[in-house]
């Protein structure tokens, strides 16, 4: 009998509570079920009439009922209270929030870091070298003979006849090899200088990343594989590439790597000079003369080296048409990236 009524009252309560919308109805609900004379108390009164055997079971059921009803009531009360409170001190949620400034790294550094992280993943260390270099490290040790036209490839700012502003990051190769025995696997990012007229396409200062790997059995095939892996990660999986013979005094064989122009997808456009290809880096096998200059045995060791410009890469990637933008440091530019 009593257990039937417990179920009934539970259902009754659940039905009533779902209709409660405000404090007034809430108070009505409380009076009806939870007050001294409420329905729940009445059930407890009836417990007295139950048999000795039934009492503990029914008592448990009744306690559970009371707990459930109280809990549900309190939850709803909190909810209604908070709603009413808000309606009293209502705030304009559409007002602007208080924004904090997070700065950003220069776009060139961001691009450089992307390149760095790819090569670090391929087991390369990251090494730096000075910008004010000796003529020997910049040219001589890298197999540029004095009075050789190869020097014309890189217009140089000189400090005097023996010191200059490095024209490429390749002298860091010499510095590493002079200090360490093979194996050497490192990239060398940094700033370089060329005495070239400033225009939208060229600036007298720019950034390069140099790469060097020397060990017992480094091959041209591995050079190709490594650089293709890099290009796929950096420029996208679907690109086509090619390696074209070129000339650098410090590598032999030397090559330049082109990828399909990602602006025209190889059809030919202004950016790729209608060739469909974009040159992204120079590379090659370390010339034996360079090994001789750093006292590496060129019979035992072979190695590859590569170098790429950061500015050009960033120009292409972000659709910037004037290299000078990188060095103007216009705040409106800096904030964009």
């Amino acid at each position: 009998m009593l257990d039937e009524r417990i179920k009934k009252i539970t259902a009754h309560f659940n039905q009533d509570i779902s209709a409660v919308k405000d404090t007034k109805q809430l108070e009505e609900l409380r009076l009806k079920f939870l007050s001294r004379n409420g329905l729940v108390s009445q059930l407890f009164d009836e417990l007295k009439n139950a048999s000795k055997e039934e009492k503990p079971v029914l008592g448990k059921l009744l306690n559970a009922l009371r707990n459930e009803v109280t809990e549900k009531f309190n939850l709803l009360k909190d909810h209604i209270d908070s709603l009413e409170k808000e309606s009293v001190e209502k705030i304009d949620l559409s007002l602007p929030g208080f924004e904090r400034t997070i700065g950003s790294k220069h776009l060139l550094i961001q691009t450089l870091n992307e390149i760095k992280s790819i090569f670090k993943g391929l087991g390369f260390s990251v090494i730096e070298g000075p910008e004010l270099e000796s003529d020997y490290n910049n040219f001589g040790a890298l197999n540029f003979p004095p009075d050789h036209p190869a020097r014309d490839m890189q217009d140089t700012f000189f400090i005097n006849s023996d010191f200059l502003l490095r024209t490429h990051t390749s002298p860091v190769q010499i510095r590493i090899m002079e200090k360490t025995k093979p194996p050497v696997r490192a990239i060398m990012p940094g700033r370089v200088y060329r005495n070239e007229a400033i225009s939208s396409r060229s600036y007298c200062v720019f950034h390069q990343v140099e790469g060097l790997y020397v060990d017992n059995d480094v091959t041209f095939a591995e050079l190709k594989g490594t650089l293709v892996a890099f290009a796929h990660q950096f420029y996208g999986e679907n690109l086509k590439y090619r390696f074209r013979p070129s000339f650098f005094p410090f590598t032999e064989p030397s090559a330049e790597m082109d990828i399909t122009c990602f602006l025209c997808h190889g059809k030919g456009c202004k950016v790729c000079k209608h060739s469909g290809w974009l040159e992204i880096l120079g590379c090659g096998m370390v010339d034996p003369n360079v090994f001789d200059n750093v006292n590496y045995d060129h019979e035992q060791y072979t190695g590859y080296a590569f170098g790429m410009g950061i500015e050009r890469t960033a120009l292409l990637k972000y659709g910037i048409d004037d290299i000078r933008v990188f060095f103007d440091n216009d705040f409106r530019f800096l904030k964009q990236f």
Binding site: G123, S125, D215, A221, E222, K224, F243
Partner: peptide, 19 residues
Amino acid sequence: YDNIPTISKISISLGEKID
């Protein structure tokens, strides 16, 4: 150069890496 194969695996020495 394009007729020289491009290898797809490299070995990395476990020596110290610095940045």
